[in-house]
Amino acid sequence: MKQPIRIEDEAQFLDPKLVKISHNQFAELQAELPDGSVHAPVEPVRTFPLTQPDQYISLLDAQKNELGLIEDINQLERADRTLLAEELKKCYFMPKITRIYSLEGQFGVTQWEAETDSGSVFFDLRSRNDITSLSGGRVLIKDIDGNRYEIVNYHQLDPKSIALLETQI
């Protein structure tokens, strides 16, 4: 007789204390798993990149097969956590817009000039559909080239930025 499915057992998380993260000689992320196997290069993937960037990190091997899930990177040892967080920061580049200097355009195409936590930036959108409005005033933007930007809570921007943004969302 097979055991009935217990849904909480289905997602197998790696024991955070037994996962060792390092770099190999090719500057690739290397992971030692609880079973003692060592894998490189390892690609960390956020399973909830927008809502839970630090939780449920999937580790993929070179063939994109999942090696395992890390429930929360904060459960890792400090050194491992730092390395993993650094790699994630590289893999997911989404500057946060803090101010919109100008936003102009017509025919649905808009040119934006904005300040982000990575410096000021120009970018173009091809249509309003590239702006996603989430709850809590969160706004996600994907530009013409595929770059991503985020506004954490647009209600907290300065009035001019809000006025500019509200013409688009």
Binding site: Q25, F26, A27, E28, P49, K90, C91, Y92, F93, M94, D145, G146, N147, R148
Partner: peptide, 22 residues
């Protein structure tokens, strides 16, 4: 990658990232 790319050079001894770009 997501929102940015890296150029990486691999030699027999190791590898280095030489550029990051949008």
């Amino acid at each position: 990658l997501y929102g940015n790319n890296f150029m990486k050079v691999r030699t027999s001894e190791g590898a280095v990232e030489v550029a990051r770009y949008s």
